[in-house]
């Protein structure tokens, strides 16, 4: 990702929350760094209390960090103008229920400085985009959590943002809704929109993100392209043309079957040659040898540790 234009850059962000009367303050962010390249989807990952939502609130100007700097589109974010090219979906968005989605978006459009005709056009468009076109003129008091989440996405997309900040966008959605959101995010990225996505759902991050920043206890743990991160371990996978167990006794000790069908062997880099010789010596036919790609969950557990992770899925 180096060399790409950066839409968001965060340097040494620090934030403590007051602990109340005669109680120590609680650090939420302790020197966080983050970069989001233009045209990418970057996932912000971390266990509960890692500082994800605090980071997003700092970016959106909802809370004031004690220290650190935030740059948006190359300029330091100091006032409301820096949010002109942005859209934000807060976690579990909530609205005034007496409004209809159309009236709500009209209100947000006015706040975003859009002219009335553009608000009308865009409202219909974004509501259709999130699958709420038929409910545009219904009061929201009977809407489900998933429907409110879609309205939240619609308001984030209303003013044609170049940069979207989404906090748990799939929260409360049914499986079909999650697939629709994933497809929507991919199409937005293909349309040149940059997205910062905070999520508990590792599968969602793994499916849509180009890069990931993992944070824990308010600090950076790892960041970079997802492909680089997940291929970083010193292990290889050997795919076989057909199942075999003939060579098992001759395989090195580090080898293990990755599947129940005995079609894939996982082996350390050091023992790769020895494993290949053993397999070929036993007559097994090798289809492919590649660096092993971990799952994001494996990578995450390796970095954070099981005790620090409360799986949201």
């Amino acid at each position: 990702m180096q060399g790409m234009e950066t839409v968001l850059r965060i340097e040494d962000l620090r934030k403590d929350y007051a602990g109340g009367w005669r109680k120590p303050s609680r650090p939420a962010l302790s020197g966080l760094h983050l970069e989001v390249p233009r045209g990418s989807i970057t996932g912000l990952l971390g266990p509960n209390g890692a500082g994800k939502t605090t980071t997003l609130k700092c970016i959106m100007g909802l809370i004031r960090p004690q220290a650190g700097r935030i740059w948006l589109f190359g300029e330091e974010a100091t006032d409301a103008r820096s949010r002109r090219r942005m859209g934000f979906l807060p976690e579990q968005p909530y609205f005034d229920f007496y409004l209809t989605p159309r009236k709500l978006l009209s209100y947000y459009g006015r706040l975003a400085g859009m002219d009335p005709s553009r608000i009308r056009t865009k409202t219909s468009y974004v509501l259709s985009l999130v699958g709420m076109g038929d409910e545009a003129d219904l009061a929201m008091d009977k809407f489900s959590k998933g429907m409110l989440q879609r309205i939240g996405l619609a308001q984030a997309l209303l003013s044609d943002p170049e940069f979207l900040v989404l906090d748990e966008p799939s929260s409360g959605l049914d499986p079909l809704g999650k697939i629709q959101v994933r497809d929507l995010l991919n199409s937005l990225r293909d349309g040149g929109i940059t997205i910062l996505l905070s999520s508990h759902q590792l599968s969602e991050i793994e499916e849509v993100c180009d890069g990931v920043a993992i944070i824990h206890k308010g600090g950076n743990v790892a960041s970079g392209s997802l492909d680089d991160m997940l291929r970083s371990r010193e292990e290889y996978e050997i795919d076989l043309e057909e199942p075999t167990s003939a060579a098992w006794d001759e395989l090195p000790g580090s080898a293990s079957w990755a599947d129940a069908a005995h079609m894939r062997v996982v082996v350390s880099k050091k023992s790769l040659n020895e494993a290949l010789k053993a397999l070929m010596g036993s007559g097994a036919s090798i289809a492919e040898v590649r660096q092993r790609r971990m799952t994001l969950e494996e990578y995450f557990l390796e970095k954070i540790g099981r005790e620090g992770w409360e799986v949201g899925e």
């Binding site: 959106m60 909802l62 409301a80 942005m86 909530y94 609205f95 947000y108 706040l111 975003a112 003013s159």
Partner: peptide, 16 residues
């Protein structure tokens, strides 16, 4: 109700 998050994330100042 956290409706403030939606409104104040728009390009408006808190003074407004």
């Amino acid at each position: 109700k956290r409706t403030l998050y939606n409104t104040l994330s728009k390009p408006v100042s808190r003074w407004q």
